[in-house]
């Protein structure tokens, strides 16, 4: 499962991605990402910040191979993606997305324990893990037999986070996981995420368009625009950056942040 001693959890080397708009004319295809080079250190939360269509979700999906890059090289735990078994890779990377990603026909308990079930964990191991996870993300155990439609938005999102953490993956990918929540619940979950992250020390790649969320949750922030990574820096550096694009963000959020 990769080398646990690898210093970098994820590494992008000049990665590009293009959608073939026409099979006959690859030259005409639209470049979604180009020249992406960055790395994610073990245990840090890298936030990819950018507006809709800037390529941040695409970047995330390249990591767990929901999309395949068309150029460059991506390494996970020091191992090129080509050397990974794709199913094993995905099972060792937690994936949390907006609430739509829960399985509507599965109960809370079945949703959360999906990956342990896929990995054929014995029952005696799944049950305590389920309790532990529900406790960890602040879900009442009475909810375990409920279906996603019977939960509030905040509860659904907690289930999503618990599901991503279930098999204790070293890396978590989170795609605007709190995007669909009301502002108060969102803040609550963001706080809990911070506390959780302090405890678990996972490597997290977090996608958002919300500057406030990026400043709050990130160790470092990567700013994306039109398929390129414009800057990547620690939160402090980011706050004081004089780059015009970064300043634009602060101006747009003026009075809010």
């Amino acid at each position: 499962m990769g080398s646990p001693t690898a210093e970098l959890a994820v590494e992008f080397r000049d990665v590009s991605f293009r959608h073939a708009s026409s099979r006959n004319e690859p030259a005409q295809s639209e470049a979604i990402l180009s020249g992406l080079t960055f790395s994610v250190r073990q245990g840090e939360t890298l936030v990819l910040l950018g507006r809709s269509g800037s390529g941040k979700t695409t970047t995330l999906k390249l990591i767990n191979q929901l999309l395949t890059s068309t150029g460059g090289e991506i390494l996970v735990q020091g191992k090129p993606l080509n050397d990974w078994d794709i199913i094993q890779l995905r099972r060792s990377i937690g994936y949390a997305i907006q609430e739509v990603g829960l399985f509507p026909h599965f109960t809370v308990e079945r949703n959360i324990t999906l990956v342990p079930h896929l990995e054929d964990w014995p029952k005696e191991r799944i049950e305590p893990r389920l309790r532990e996870l529900m406790h960890l993300v602040g879900l009442d155990e009475d909810l375990r037999k409920r279906y996603p439609r019977e939960l509030s938005g905040g509860q659904r999102q907690r289930v999503g986070v618990a599901r991503a953490l279930a098999a204790d993956p070293p890396i978590l990918l989170m795609d605007e996981p709190f995007g669909a929540l009301d502002p108060i619940t969102r803040l609550e979950l963001q706080r809990e995420f911070l506390a959780l992250q302090k405890k678990l020390q996972k490597t997290v790649v977090f996608v958002t368009h919300d500057l406030r969320e990026a400043l709050m949750l990130g160790s470092r922030i990567g700013l994306m625009e039109a398929g390129e990574l414009m800057s990547i820096s620690s939160v402090d550096q980011f706050k004081h950056s004089q780059e015009p694009l970064v300043r634009q963000y602060f101006e747009a959020f003026e009075g809010i942040v």
């Binding site: 999906k61 767990n64 929901l66 199913i87 094993q88 890779l89 995905r90 099972r91 994936y95 997305i97 907006q98 739509v100 990603g101 829960l102 399985f103 509507p104 026909h105 999906l114 990956v115 896929l118 599901r163 990918l173």
Partner: peptide
């Protein structure tokens, strides 16, 4: 079936067969 649900399943490491039978 909602494509977002399928993508979540794939992203979680379900095989094609598991996605067919379980989702």
């Amino acid at each position: 079936v909602d494509p977002a649900v399928l993508e979540a399943g794939r992203g979680m490491g379900m095989t094609d067969r598991q996605i067919l039978w379980q989702i």
